[in-house]
Design a protein around this nucleic acid. Sequence first.
DNA 1: CACTTTCGTTGGATCGATTCAAATTTTGGC
DNA 2: GCCAAAATTTGAATCGATCCAACGAAAGTG
Lengths: 360, 360
Amino acid sequence: MASLTEGNTRPVRLADIAKAAGVSHGTASNVFSRPEIVREEVRERVKAAAEAMGYAGPDPKGRLLRAGKVNAIGVATTDPLSYFFDDPYARAMMASISATCDATGTGIALVSAGNEEKLAWNIQSALVDGFILFCIEGGSRLVELTLERKLPFVALELGFEDDRVSAIGVDNVAGARLAARHLAGLGHRRFAVLSLAFADDSTGLVSPGQVQAAVYTGTRDRLAGYFEELSRFGVDTARVPVYETENDEASTWAGLETIFASAEPPTAILAMSDRTAMIAIEWLAARDIAVPRDVSIVGFDGVPDAALCDPALTTVAQPIAEIGRRAARRILDFDGTVRRETLDVELVVRASSGPPPTRA
Amino acid sequence: MASLTEGNTRPVRLADIAKAAGVSHGTASNVFSRPEIVREEVRERVKAAAEAMGYAGPDPKGRLLRAGKVNAIGVATTDPLSYFFDDPYARAMMASISATCDATGTGIALVSAGNEEKLAWNIQSALVDGFILFCIEGGSRLVELTLERKLPFVALELGFEDDRVSAIGVDNVAGARLAARHLAGLGHRRFAVLSLAFADDSTGLVSPGQVQAAVYTGTRDRLAGYFEELSRFGVDTARVPVYETENDEASTWAGLETIFASAEPPTAILAMSDRTAMIAIEWLAARDIAVPRDVSIVGFDGVPDAALCDPALTTVAQPIAEIGRRAARRILDFDGTVRRETLDVELVVRASSGPPPTRA
DNA sequence: CACTTTCGTTGGATCGATTCAAATTTTGGC
DNA sequence: GCCAAAATTTGAATCGATCCAACGAAAGTG
């Protein structure tokens, strides 16, 4: 006797159960995709055969090829995948993107790439209908790679002035000016900037030359905005220390050490991300430097956590939810056009900023 | 003249460029997948043709069918997709899962299902090699559906005693006992429990009958652990209010209102999740009830945030990273076996628990 | 009863690649 | 210049479904 029916390890295919039930594969397919057009008796027979043979249902791999549409959008970054769950900005953005996807029954595929080779492969082989790119850093390479897929995609940052790529971002110059004006208006004159990267893998104090050579225009624009506004208030921006961080604890701490080692430490810090700003608040608290009594801080991004930290962070809020919604919509309702949108930011004044200490 | 070459809208296929370059599609395929085995001259010719025709590279949809392996693992929940980015437990777990996936170049597909119909479809059509299921709530249905796909999967919770499903979880009874013993040992005798759901869609004060009928055994086990240990200390568990929350603000607030409306409010709260515990801490702070002076709280889960809130939360820590790592590994190295693992929890004592107030 | 509809079913074509045994071309040795 | 071995290239088969034109059977019509 032994085993007499079907092959042992090989998974059961639609064709197998069609044969077993004595119908054509076309009919078998209909049983699953449009059961109402199949006569009940036949339908039951096919279902019974499927059950008996342990059929797992139509394999999406097969369907996909025919259908053409994956029904998933890829979200890509050059950071490790955990970025999506760790970084507060990414999280807020993902929450908005996923809400939109949820509403339309679209799936989300997370794509990352630590190193060059894997990046390429992961982008090339992602099963998605389009991409949303987080291109805070190392964006250009990501964009090139994605361009090759010839799928709809949108960059979350207006980084490069490339008119082949759709993008959604904020007016960084205007936002930075809001922050600077707020602090200068409160009376501050001694500033320091906790910056994001200007180019790949750079950190540390920044020279004007490096600013000129900035690859990441988002960073450059924010700095430009800060400086423009500070100049109006008579601040000599050449003497404002700009420390480039990697938006993490280690590099931000290093920056603060450097900045506060100065003979004339700042009374106000302009941070280019809320994350850096919040790290700075903790660093200062640990050293008994009171915020905002001794030092004021203004962040950038407007992540939800910024409202909850202590003291609550004054920040330039991006419309994160709106950006996420639009990005997802742009992929879902892709119409073949390239568009670049700039949304407005808003200064949210909270407890981390106040007048400078009355002067020693 | 007009347009004479290729179809206009239709995307370019491998076969198209093979024809254009005058080679077989087999060779064209090799140019992309194993370039080293095709003669340089031919390779260049094919690449040139691809370039000229705007070929996007081998379509993963096609490859997939042949290759069989998607190289992605699906993570599913019955909550909305944003759960993965909002809930601290989910986030910590995802960070660990994604680190493992990153290391192996595996993608992650997020799958969710608000309503029944979509749930089914999303699970059935997910392009993945296996699933990791977050089945905190509504798990059984999710498991049934996933079972039908006949793909490897693992449940993150030992919820059901179903030996068809692999699972990784913690010893809930032991963990709950640690929490209860800690508080009782400090001298507390008046307790309240902020519980998770015992069954679908239930909230509110729980009767012993409901506990008996618990569908979610994780919740039931934690409560059993609490009560076992409290009994040893002579606490009449029948009088301990157990309030079922949905692990969110609204229901937790409601629970606290109820619990503290009592004539003899508790001096100690056993919360079945850190999230609930942290929400409780905020609620109490807003009412000037000092933690731990007036009320002690012990959470459950050991999420990273618990160490950062104020006061830092005493909690029963699950080895979240380890669970995530093992879950991902179980899918990646699937060997056809079903296994259920129970990991140990650990009581982490922080600032939210202390002796009860010296009695009025 | 012949004739049109309607309903279900069939089976070939297709989606876009990869694979592999067989055919062909090159290369190397003498 | 001939033959075996090595290097390339070919083209049919396959992956697992869905789609659709065509066809047969049952139902409806005058």
